[in-house]
Design a binder for these strands. Sequence first.
DNA 1: GTGCGACCTTGCCCTTAGGGCAAGGTCAAG
DNA 2: CTTGACCTTGCCCTAAGGGCAAGGTCGCAC
Lengths: 243, 243
Amino acid sequence: MITIGRLAQYAGVTTKTIRVYHAKGLLPEPERDASGYRRYTAQHAIDLIKIRTLAEAGVPLARIRELRADPDTDLRAALHEADLALTARIRDLRRTQQRLRRLAGGDAGLLPPGVGAYLDRLRAYGFSPRWVNLQADLWLLLFTTHPRTAAESLDDQAGILADPALRALFHDYDRAHGLDPGDPYLQDLADRIVRATRDRYGAAGLPGQEPASDIPELIQRAVNASSPAWRRLDTLIRRGLRG
Amino acid sequence: MITIGRLAQYAGVTTKTIRVYHAKGLLPEPERDASGYRRYTAQHAIDLIKIRTLAEAGVPLARIRELRADPDTDLRAALHEADLALTARIRDLRRTQQRLRRLAGGDAGLLPPGVGAYLDRLRAYGFSPRWVNLQADLWLLLFTTHPRTAAESLDDQAGILADPALRALFHDYDRAHGLDPGDPYLQDLADRIVRATRDRYGAAGLPGQEPASDIPELIQRAVNASSPAWRRLDTLIRRGLRG
DNA sequence: GTGCGACCTTGCCCTTAGGGCAAGGTCAAG
DNA sequence: CTTGACCTTGCCCTAAGGGCAAGGTCGCAC
């Protein structure tokens, strides 16, 4: 006839845990003594130990109650079930960890393979940190939202970077960030970009475009947001491509 | 300028999740359009993707908010931290699974090694299922509450079982379950048990007893609970050992 | 006999990361 | 014009307890 504190001590839980198990109908309420204290028997201790073994293996308390309510369930079957569930959870966690490691493997924190190398080349070619960081975020977005087509876009972009003339255009784009939006140089740059775009893609659209996606527009807006000159450049390029 | 539903779709979450992140200060609230709808930018999408990557790795949202509030924390450091936490969780789960498997390995469900073999021998010697089940529960209780000394007690008990004369006493104890508590046979059995106990342990106490533990008394009460004859037997044995 | 610390009682609110529902407003298409 | 899909806020709910308050009790020391 032990008290709740002693029972808790034997079972390695807190008294609160025992009271919760009473409230949830997992463990029967014991008799009370004259002053209202709960008085437990060996049977309670045995039940509690079995309950804890299942609970620690991750079996939900509601499921444990079911198992105990059905008197002919085999404890061993329940343990096997718990074992399988644990195996599945371990597998999921391992998968998450794999993903995490792949993401962390690149130089830029969260990026898919390939993007890290691309960003390294941007840096090596002397693009500004602002440009590199912007690209890192935008490729992350593109790879997350359009995992199938993003790689194609990245290949295209890498090809552009390998061409000195096209690379120079992007360099100029990068450097135009702080210009006055009224600077006539922007019109010149826009014209050159329009011509290069026409040369590269002709009538066909850009590669790796998902139909009816908001993402490209979202990205262009994000680019424009940081500079009035870039906004102006965007306007001029669009006008040139339409006209 | 996408709506919350589209953003959720891109990030692979529900709209509720996004609202929760707003409420917890993880993701800034975007502008609203004329009818009060939230309108998100690419920056929101990028932030949300980064938040989800950490959250899926098990980083608590409160910690993610800290990381983002501190602008010069490295996302990679956070990822490494998450990786370590995942490793620890996987290790814990594996440990739980090991324990589960050790427990399930025995024939009796939850029992430590050694007890399963002991119970098998009880069955082989023809003890009743009631007795075997009772023993299973009681050894589980003893091993859980007194892990250091229980093995010693079990060894002692196994030794008793190996002695045909002593085994017969326990057999008689088992079979006395249904007797009338007034049956004079009980006095005879009690006398034999008292003599055997004296012979085996002499003045020294029983082996493997923890000082000041309620468990032995609890166990005896649990045994007594199932049979008036056993209660009577307990009384007579105690009287015999005292006198 | 009285004080004190440790224990017990119930009841209530708090936690994580969202899920679900209600009641009402909005948008786009047929 | 209606319908279905979307959006808004607000509220309650989850699992497995943690923590605290206010009050009653036990055992031991003085």
